[in-house]
Amino acid sequence: MFNKIAPDKWKHFFVGIPMGAVLEVASAMMFPGSPLLAALVALAMIIVISYGFELFSLITGKGHYDVMDAVASIIGGIIGMLPGALVYLA
């Protein structure tokens, strides 16, 4: 099942993991005592950055526009949010 996923999608997925962790920690620091708000802000930023990068590729012609690349980054970012939250809470 996982061997059918294109290699470039895996790159986006693995880049999304540290992005999610960093954004979760940054959001938790910005909104102490509000873990839900911090998580929602981090998720919103992950979505904006992931899709924004693809839009940048489309508009400038630098790179290849593919919505599924953004989806892979977002999934990785969501997974990365958990260790980010655990690091901040520890």
Rank of each mutant, 00 (worst) to 15 (best):
M1G: 11
F2T: 06
F2I: 07
F2W: 12
N3E: 15
K4S: 12
K4E: 10
K4H: 12
P7K: 08
P7R: 07
D8R: 03
D8Q: 05
D8E: 05
D8N: 06
K11S: 13
H12F: 09
F13N: 03
F13Y: 15
F13Q: 03
F13P: 07
F14A: 07
V15A: 15
G16I: 07
G16D: 12
I17P: 11
P18F: 12
P18I: 06
M19V: 02
A21R: 02
V22H: 08
L23R: 00
E24R: 00
M29R: 13
M29P: 01
F31R: 02
F31M: 08
F31K: 02
P32E: 11
G33A: 07
G33T: 05
G33K: 03
G33S: 08
G33P: 09
S34I: 00
S34K: 09
S34D: 09
P35V: 02
L36N: 08
A38Y: 08
A38S: 09
A39R: 04
A39C: 05
A39H: 08
L40I: 07
L40V: 08
V41F: 15
V41A: 14
A42Y: 10
L43E: 06
A44G: 15
I46M: 10
I47V: 11
I47T: 07
I47G: 09
V48S: 11
V48N: 07
S50R: 01
S50C: 03
S50K: 01
Y51A: 11
Y51W: 14
G52F: 15
L55C: 06
F56W: 10
S57P: 00
S57W: 00
L58H: 06
L58W: 14
T60L: 02
T60W: 02
T60F: 03
T60E: 01
T60I: 01
G61L: 00
H64M: 01
H64E: 04
Y65A: 15
Y65P: 12
V67I: 09
V67E: 10
M68C: 05
M68R: 09
D69K: 01
D69P: 11
V71W: 11
V71F: 13
S73N: 10
I75E: 08
I75R: 03
I75C: 10
G76N: 03
G76F: 11
I78T: 05
I78M: 08
M81G: 02
M81Q: 00
M81V: 00
P83N: 01
P83W: 04
A85F: 13
V87G: 04
Y88T: 03
Y88D: 04
Y88G: 04
L89R: 04
A90K: 02
A90P: 04
